[in-house]
Nucleic acid binder design. Structure first.
Length: 116
DNA sequence: ACCATGACTATAA
DNA sequence: CTTATAGCCATGG
């Protein structure tokens, strides 16, 4: 049976809510985890504002680039939210993204801190 | 139904 | 490093 599209959106929100504070994730990782395309993840996040409890700022593209910054209230909002969690952002890019990237497949929880 | 667009990514040049 | 192409698929005109 084909997975419901609305269910996929909810799955995206569910995963994003599980991203630990101070960590980030990419659209592609979530997409692969749920068996969808990265574009759908972005689309889901675009609608995530209605839920209010989805930390969409913790999702960036595979390069750690804040590609969704223009979809927040203000372009600087995404960076500010990340920096408030201890995530360094330089030139719209997450510093040491590969170290901060949270992969639910290999890192369930209680992971060691980003370790600079 | 067709066409354009987009918070993406992989690959190639 | 950049640019171009292809694959991806929901959404809107």
């Amino acid at each position: 049976m084909k997975p419901d599209r609305a269910a996929f959106f909810d799955q995206v929100y569910s995963v994003v809510r599980q991203i630990p504070r101070g960590r980030v994730c990419s659209y592609g990782i979530i997409a692969r985890l749920l068996g969808g395309s990265p574009r759908l993840v972005g689309y889901a996040l675009n609608h995530s504002h209605v839920y209010g409890d989805v930390p969409a700022h913790r999702v960036v593209n595979r390069n750690g680039l804040l590609t969704g910054k223009y979809h927040f209230a203000t372009p600087n909002r995404m960076r500010e939210l990340l920096e408030a969690e201890g995530v360094e952002v330089v030139e719209d890019r997450v510093v040491r993204f590969e170290s901060l990237c949270w992969d639910p497949l290999s890192e369930i929880d209680s992971e060691p801190p980003p370790a600079r």
